[in-house]
Amino acid sequence: MTCTMDELILKLKKEIIDVLNLEDITPEDITDDAPLFGEGLGLDSIDALELIVLMEKNYGIKLKDPSQGRELFRSIRVMADYIQANRTK
């Protein structure tokens, strides 16, 4: 459970690529601060729901309000910061 921020960011990138079926995208292709939605990885609303499931399943973080995702999923770094501060597993 204890890992550095860089390790967490890399792990998170791999998990996102896997769970969202981002074929042909590697962790190196995802910039830590680039937006995940819109022009970033081009994710959609179903992807957002899948990320909410990922947060709960892998890190024990339950988002009570799905609209929180809009802020949390701004970038990998924002996600990782939130996970580091709130994870229960």
Binding site: V19, L20, N21, I46, D47, L49, E50, V53, E56, K57
Partner: peptide, 9 residues
């Protein structure tokens, strides 16, 4: 219990 939204659709 983690039903997958992307599989559900």
């Amino acid at each position: 219990y983690f039903p997958s939204p992307s599989l559900f659709v």
